[in-house]
Design a protein around this nucleic acid. Sequence first.
DNA 1: CGGGTTCTTGACTAGTTTCAAGCAAAGTGG
DNA 2: CCACTTTGCTTGAAACTAGTCAAGAACCCG
Lengths: 251, 251
Amino acid sequence: MIVGNQRPGQYTPCEQCPLRKRPNLREFTPDELEFVKQFKMDELRVESGASFLRQGTSSEHLYTVLSGWAFRYKMLDDGRRQILNFALPADMLGLQGTLMKEMEHSVEALTPLVLCVFPRSKLWDLYSRFPSLAFDITWLAAREEQLTDEHMVSLGRRTALERTAFLLLHLYVRAEEAGMTRNGTIQFPFTQQHLADALGMSLVHTNKTLKRLMATKAVRWQDRVFALADRSALAEIAGDDVTLQTGRPFI
Amino acid sequence: MIVGNQRPGQYTPCEQCPLRKRPNLREFTPDELEFVKQFKMDELRVESGASFLRQGTSSEHLYTVLSGWAFRYKMLDDGRRQILNFALPADMLGLQGTLMKEMEHSVEALTPLVLCVFPRSKLWDLYSRFPSLAFDITWLAAREEQLTDEHMVSLGRRTALERTAFLLLHLYVRAEEAGMTRNGTIQFPFTQQHLADALGMSLVHTNKTLKRLMATKAVRWQDRVFALADRSALAEIAGDDVTLQTGRPFI
DNA sequence: CGGGTTCTTGACTAGTTTCAAGCAAAGTGG
DNA sequence: CCACTTTGCTTGAAACTAGTCAAGAACCCG
């Protein structure tokens, strides 16, 4: 695990934040931008496969994903793992660890990850001086819950095929919003084991379900490249289409 | 469904809020109390079985449970239901509906329910003038997510017996914190169908799993009365004990 | 005293996991 | 540069878990 900013030359100033250019994100006022600029204390690069937040520890920092993929997960004592959600650029991580006594989940990088680091100590300052930003943080927390609620329906009540279709569609749509797709195609960085741990199924059954799904021609997924061939067919199989909140904030 | 305060004589002024007496809850400052008092616009009584928040609608209000049980749930088109979480006194409901365009889940009363009603329109006021309360709302959102994360592990990775044991223990502990238990005993207001929908299992299988669990003598549950006979045995079966955050806020 | 809801049980079926083995691609080290 | 190992994907068979169907018992309410 790499701690701290290893390449100071590549530090991204908030004025030039690449996330700012994305259409779906709400604008900062000049005041907010000025505050966020000094709220950001560092940039952290994490190599893929490293867990930079761990269940049972308290985190001094709050993070926003600048680039790359991560996932939140929980482990049981005997090694069973449940992936709770994936994190993409503009998503916030570690809020629980700064508000609560300790984190109850871990976060691992799926790809090389660049994170903006915010100190817990200035969070109070943010809440006092920028209620609009405080609002945004609450919004992000509520959205994260909305995503996990939806995933919970999959785990509890959708069939293996439905839930696999739904998760792939969900991830595709989020990646699309993050501008990571090209011609209905995206490089998914996870393995079938990750998918299995997210879907609450065994690896073998996930593999067979994936085959079954690909037999419908709605999607293709080979060599880590995923192609959404027929969205409405996939949504049909999933039993529901995926819509994301528009005009979302980030910090 | 009963709308508005039907019995004005029973309106609970915030100074005399019964939740305030509970040990685990954080205190308000006099200023905060004064604000909350005028933030509370009404008291709502809902009869059991009524859904007072519905997925697909936007809610003008935010609620805090004063007394009674409720549950958050989502329905699929064909009638499958997933219960996401239960709500007890001091829990906040409807935050998603006030922050987002619309609710993505519904909430139904399990018992006659009394709710404090807060208008969305004054939420901005709260964030501007009382950062401490804004912090509390974020805290409550983060906690709700923590609870659903844990439940998600159950649905995805715990066996039927483990997840049943865990949910019962979880509900008992929360009810205990809310002062609703007596001598290791509590009146649970839900049916096996509710439990099944929370556990992501069929009614029949839930019933059989419950029998199996009761055969261990760790718990008893008859005629809606639940008795935690041996907590450590139950925690052992669940694979994990339940601990709640201490010093929680409420509004 | 019905009629409805909830709980219970057994038998059967469908879905899922586990076990085991093989293959391909990528990475490692002499 | 070529064995060798590791990782990820794939497949079939057997064992187990959970769902569906069906029916009866217990209880509550009006």
